[in-house]
Amino acid sequence: MYYLAEAFPVVRRFRIPLSRDQSMLLTLAFNELLLGVETYVAHLISGTIVPYEWIPIIFGPVAAVLLMLAGFLAQRNRPLATIIANLVFTTSIIVGLLGAYFHAVRAIRPYAAPGERVSVSLLVWAPPVLGPLTFALVGILGISASWIEDPPDSGTLLFWRGRRLSLPYSKTRAYFFLVGMGSLATVISSVLDHARTDFSNPWLWVPTAIGVFATTVAIVLGALDKPIRADILTYFVAMLLMILVGVVGFILHIGEDLTVSGDIVLERFLRGAPPLAPMLFADIGLLGLIAMLDPVEQQEVERSD
């Protein structure tokens, strides 16, 4: 189902030069680059980056370059491009899980007295446990996007030499589930960080509410066998709200990091409200919108023409 066209029939008149999966892969490549940059800024908080903290910082840009190369290569040698992309995305999953482990370890006191080893407070003040999982989400989305679904919306992925894998949900509905999970991770991450400030600023409730809403709507849309137009429109609005929350949050974080007189002090940006963190909301919103694009691959469109 071409969900965006179901919501807005007029879009059927326009042909986007990239297929949905190509758009997804391009966005994910850009994501890897930005994740590397954001991780560098975050790991600078103590002033000294220890060796294993460099893993995601180096991986992000390298992954972005490799994915772009795979994209160029896909026109001439799709199987090789798919192998490269899957290797990168699998590594991204590993990097994300490793990062989540390293962060989680800082929230746990394994040798403390029983009852004091884990607490919500420790999670609040530890490095963001769910932040690194963005690498993993990018990896899972990327693996999904790199394989052709044939027929479209069937849930059957086409591998080499005619081999197929039947999944219980179509790729589109899988995207919605993943967007929901990504939205959930984002809102939990934001709540844990904002909890440090006692939620004294009423603006902090906005990303919480929008994030929970977007999570629920994305999951529900993925679960529905036959969504009606209103369901799709609700999802579309939810993704737009996620983008809006991200952009507004970005501006508010920058405002918080400026001094009272509006001066820019780099240290405050490194150690204060992370400027790029709210953009994760916008990122999920964008990925959610991409999931609504036509699931038909470009080659099939050209064959049908």
Binding site: Y111, A112, V120, L122, L123, V187, A195, R196, F199
Partner: peptide, 23 residues
């Protein structure tokens, strides 16, 4: 987790109150 985090927000982690080497 969201509800618990909001409920306990503002209470600065008394990281120093936990003895990380107790066991």
């Amino acid at each position: 987790l969201i509800i618990l985090a909001i409920g306990q927000s503002g209470a600065p982690v008394e990281a120093e109150s936990v003895n990380a080497l107790a066991n």
